[in-house]
Simulated scan of single mutants.
Amino acid sequence: MTETAIDIAANSALLVIDVQKGFDDPSFWGPRNNPAAEENIAALMDLWQETGRPVVLVRHASRPGSVLAPDQPGHAFKDLVEERLGQEALLITKTVNSAFYGTPDLAAWLTARGIGQLVVAGIQTNMCVETTARMAGNLGYEVLVPLDATHTFDLAGPDGLSLTADELAAATAVNLQGGGFARVVSTAQLLSASGAAQLTA
């Protein structure tokens, strides 16, 4: 089957969700998947900045006691994000799963700039990334999710059911694309499409 070409808008916004140091604590979160996630996120940030496209950095502020609480070292962005912070990037702080329920208001910021396409990457795949992508789809944005620029952790559910991080990521891919919320793509596809769009712009 031939893949449909990806068209990256000149003002496509890259949402980098919760790439924070607190997620590096395996004693708190358990086993993770996709060790290449951070490298892929960095590559996307680099290209979005090089091509002058908007970058939105989202940071989770958890309740006291969490490694992501504002008074904890884990609240800080990982080094790969800190090293790429630019004055032009929008910084959103949230306390729930969706970046659309944060401060400042993401939807208002996007609307003011006429942005209709979002690329959603970050942590965790099946939590804040999926929730943000679902809500973006509901709000009418064109949403692209590079699954290999996300990662998550093994998770236990009801009645002894548990899923590995890879199983959860696969479920997210099916939920998002099968449910019509977003198109699931790879980092390589986005880098190629974004670069080609810039060269032909």
Rank of each mutant, 00 (worst) to 15 (best):
V119G: 08
E130A: 06
A121D: 02
D105Y: 06
V58E: 05
A156F: 11
P54F: 10
D18S: 02
M127K: 11
E167V: 08
L163N: 08
I41R: 06
V129N: 04
P64T: 05
A173V: 00
T111F: 01
L106W: 02
T164Q: 00
V81E: 03
T95M: 05
H75K: 01
M135S: 11
N40A: 07
L106V: 03
S162P: 00
K78R: 15
A173Q: 01
G178C: 09
I41T: 07
L85I: 08
E88W: 10
G30R: 00
S12F: 04
L139Y: 07
D79R: 11
K78N: 13
G157Q: 15
S194L: 10
V96A: 01
R134V: 03
T164L: 07
V81C: 00
S12L: 02
F153T: 10
N175Q: 10
T200P: 09
A173C: 05
H151N: 14
D25V: 09
L106P: 05
S186I: 07
L168A: 06
L15Y: 06
S66Q: 02
V174D: 12
N97G: 13
T111Q: 10
D71N: 12
E83F: 06
G179N: 15
L161D: 04
A149P: 04
I8W: 05
L163A: 15
A42F: 10
S62R: 01
H60E: 09
G157K: 15
I115D: 04
L47F: 07
P104A: 09
L118Q: 00
